[in-house]
Design a protein around this nucleic acid. Sequence first.
DNA 1: CAAAGTTGTAATATAGTATATTACAACTAT
DNA 2: ATAGTTGTAATATACTATATTACAACTTTG
Lengths: 148, 148
Amino acid sequence: MQIGSKFTIGVHIITAIDYFREMDRVNSEFLAGSIGINPVIVRTVISQLREAGLVRTQRGSSGGELTKGLDEITLYDIYKAVGSVDEEEGLFHFHEQPNPECPVGRNIHTVLDRRLIDAQRAMEEKLRQTTLADIVKDTKEAVEKESK
Amino acid sequence: MQIGSKFTIGVHIITAIDYFREMDRVNSEFLAGSIGINPVIVRTVISQLREAGLVRTQRGSSGGELTKGLDEITLYDIYKAVGSVDEEEGLFHFHEQPNPECPVGRNIHTVLDRRLIDAQRAMEEKLRQTTLADIVKDTKEAVEKESK
DNA sequence: CAAAGTTGTAATATAGTATATTACAACTAT
DNA sequence: ATAGTTGTAATATACTATATTACAACTTTG
């Protein structure tokens, strides 16, 4: 099981919006071309980024812009914005009907849950430690290296 | 997206095998009853636990036993055993066709990957920190509390 | 040894979800 | 006014998790 690609798509989108800031025509079609997916998916993900307050876009008007500095946007913000993991359900799918008549069955959930949440949090904490400034910086450096 | 329930099922199985060690007839049907799933799923998961060297079972002969001490089995061992996350693919699904003709497209993968792997590892590291001895101990304590 | 019970596994079904695609109204820019 | 763009709904497709049926191989029991 994997966390859906909307997360990396979201990162790609924000990176590209900044990277191609000077250019015009950075519309959903252009982004879709860079990412290698359908433009509608781009617009869907951008909608989620907008709802999360990360980008501004306008119906009819091409392109969009970031509402915050790159260093104020973390991977976690995007992960959350696109709903990579359902808030209610969590990262780990627990079997749903442990038997309440069994001592193990009626306690395993409580016993395990704390640990599963901890593990999920540790992953999310790592995502908080990288900002989009890091990503754009590394991307530019990688592009620099190419021309040598 | 969620990590499949085979993981928590695996934890439940090992916990129950130990918890009901004294009893006989801890077969796949009994376990299925405790977990609330189909016995075939139990046998499938047990097969994976066996292949990972965590339990011993025998065709035709009811029940099974652990091959290690509970304190030598971590949540991570079970997570790995049941293949919660594909080794090749990783936890995060990356969009598969970023455009190599775009500077962002051809570098985003390399730039992001390291961070995604780090995040996944942090989660897995947490899973390594809990042993099945912890789980069984907590379960027994929870059962104790019930009778008060 | 025969009968009953159990495991291991294959084959198939079903349901849920990610992603793709079509379509179009609402809006902007020219 | 015309062309281009976004936002979003509706639908299709493919993939995966889980459930279920079936049965051969094997063990245990009487």
